[in-house]
């Protein structure tokens, strides 16, 4: 943009000064709330001693990171984190788009509003409570499945909290149930924003509903899909702590399939209370996410510049 030297650039700034003014409050906020505290990244490399102050504490290099890589669990927690979050991204996106499209098809306004409210309900309940609700289903003695459902099917009661093999499915279902509604509302906003003329024209041309969805709806909300997916990829190393800790009730035998980076870090910190190690974990998670996003953003921008994040 500055290919013809500085003068045109400043002229341009003048032309856009109103737009820049609009951004000031937001930018100032992000600087204070997000950028100033980033000096805290140094904590990950320090042995914090408050008597010396954060900046005055001793440097310890990568010692705070060791526990994330050196132990036998490193492979398991990394694998679990990526597999779960990877499948969550795909499942959530597909389900939420499907529901959003369907919701947009409900002609009765009152029903549509009712459905939409109800679908968002699970999102409002905290994970701790969800953990108890799941327990009421799965409890060995008083749970619904063991008490009512399995006998109907002639299956012996199952000790759910000691059988790792069921948990990848249980966690996936709980996760989908809890967060699909939220995502759905975002996609719905994008769908509603689509100009109706497109559909009218398509109908006149005799396009079926399915064709319209494929040729109009999905391509037009593609920017929103892309952005949501990229953001999810950026957080792929972070997990919903409540889902992996509260819902399985922190049950030991389930750990090989329920342990993710966040729960592992939490357990270590419960006994240690070391902010150096938690900063290290956070930095590691951010860094991986950052690299993955840069990569996927690059791929997206090769295909369609407008859909890219930046």
């Amino acid at each position: 943009m500055a290919q013809t030297g500085w003068t045109p650039f400043f002229k341009k700034l003048r032309r856009y000064r109103a737009l820049f003014l609009m951004m000031v409050p937001g930018i100032v906020y992000l600087v204070i709330n997000n950028y100033l505290p980033m000096f805290g990244v140094v904590i990950a490399f320090k042995d914090i001693n408050y008597a010396k102050g954060i900046l005055g504490s001793d440097w310890v290099g990568f010692k705070n990171f060791e526990y994330l890589f050196k132990t036998a669990d490193a492979y398991i927690i990394t694998r679990n984190t990526i597999l779960y979050n990877g499948s969550f991204i795909i499942l959530n996106t597909v389900t939420a788009i499907a529901i959003a499209i369907l919701l947009n098809e409900v002609r009765n306004k009152l029903s549509a509003r009712f459905y939409q409210s109800v679908i968002l309900l699970p999102f409002l309940i905290s994970m701790v409570i969800v953990g108890y609700l799941v327990l009421s289903m799965l409890s060995a003695e008083s749970g619904y499945l063991n008490l009512n459902l399995l006998p109907l099917l002639g299956i012996e009661p199952i000790s759910w909290y000691f059988e790792p093999k069921y948990w990848p499915y249980i966690l996936t279902i709980v996760q989908l149930w809890k967060s699909a509604g939220y995502l759905c509302v975002i996609f719905l906003a994008a769908i509603i924003g689509i100009d109706h003329e497109y559909y009218e024209a398509a109908t006149i041309d005799g396009a079926t509903k399915w064709q319209q969805i494929r040729a109009i709806t999905v391509p037009l909300i593609a920017p929103t899909i892309t952005i949501m997916t990229l953001l999810a990829i950026g957080r792929i190393f972070y997990s919903d702590f409540g889902l992996f800790y509260q819902v399985p009730l922190n049950s030991g035998p389930l750990q090989p399939v329920t342990d993710v980076i966040d729960t592992y870090v939490y357990r270590g910190l419960m006994t240690l209370g070391d902010i150096g190690m938690s900063s290290a974990a956070g930095l590691y998670q951010s860094l991986v996410g950052f690299i993955l996003v840069l990569l996927s953003n690059f791929i997206v921008s090769r295909r369609n510049k407008e859909n890219a994040l930046f």
Binding site: D73, Y264, M270, L272
Partner: peptide, 12 residues
Amino acid sequence: KTEVAAVANVNN
């Protein structure tokens, strides 16, 4: 601390 974190996990 690296070992304590790992042991906490096995303990659990």
